[in-house]
Design a protein around this nucleic acid. Structure first.
Lengths: 156, 156
DNA sequence: GCTGAAACCACTTGCTC
DNA sequence: GAGCAAGTGGTTTCAGC
């Protein structure tokens, strides 16, 4: 893998391969090969090229957190003191495993995070005992996600 | 895959397997087998059980949207008219491919979405010509993500 | 719940066009 | 530059314990 290239050329075959594998990373390459009409080796060659271009970043197993008891998802907008730099706050947020995403945003807040907790009590604990304790965090606004109704990657 | 079970028992071996595969879904099962000290067939058996329990939902190839020119990510809070039901709005949002996530949230908005666009012009177009045109959408608030600094799944 | 063998598949290499 | 065929080693199934 090199540094990402902003000028990657993707043809229709690449798109078909990626569409299959974005749905199921362990789908047999030979199945894809048969459905497209080229050899498995050719698919491999293309995948290596896509990885080298930086388009293909990797693959992940997806687990359902509800089955492990994580049923409370929330977004939290964080206000930082002027003196607190964003990277220092992010470093602290990284240490909290319940924090799944962290964005440096325009608008009201300095930071918008997504967190996943077991229940409301757990959420309250993370909020009061972890996030609010970070130096420079002045105020937070919490939005609980009652249901996640869409979750996908971009369409290629 | 059956209906998700809230009482799944996961032992240390399952956790090790999942931790490997959540990082790289195509990691050779035999490598994992050797590092844990059981046979590849045993790993496979455990994976099938984890899938049947609903914990393991699937696997995905991860692509880097920046390489395809998608550089502008934003969160949008959407206010719905009282008369507009959430499911009907979600149905419309599903048709907009730039919408990657959609949450039914407590707090100010009815809906919070994450969208990914090529640039600010593209974002403006999706906002004005797609989202604002949905029946029942009264007002929106946009927060552009200048940088996504954390992106991960829950730790098991 | 695990193992080992057999069948199938992934991935590499060397070649052809 | 892109494809194929064959070879090595990994994946997956299944009988057996």
């Amino acid at each position: 893998m090199k540094s990402p290239n902003q000028n990657v050329k993707i043809d229709g075959i690449d798109k078909k391969i990626l569409r299959f594998l974005m749905e199921d990373a362990r789908k047999p390459v030979l199945e894809i090969a048969r459905s497209i009409g080229i050899s498995g080796a050719a698919i491999h060659q293309r995948l290596r090229k896509l990885e080298a271009s930086g388009l293909l970043v990797g693959s992940k197993f997806v687990i359902n957190p509800k089955v492990m008891g994580y049923t409370t998802m929330a977004y939290i907008g964080i206000y930082l003191d002027k003196a607190m730099s964003n990277p220092r706050a992010v470093k602290q947020l990284e240490k909290i495993p319940e924090v799944l995403e962290c964005h440096y945003t325009t608008g009201n807040w300095s930071i918008l995070i997504k967190i996943l907790c077991m229940d409301n009590e757990h959420l309250m604990h993370v909020l009061n005992k972890e996030i609010q304790q970070i130096e420079g965090v002045s105020r937070t606004e919490t939005f609980i996600s009652l249901a996640q109704q869409i979750d996908r990657q971009i369409t290629i």
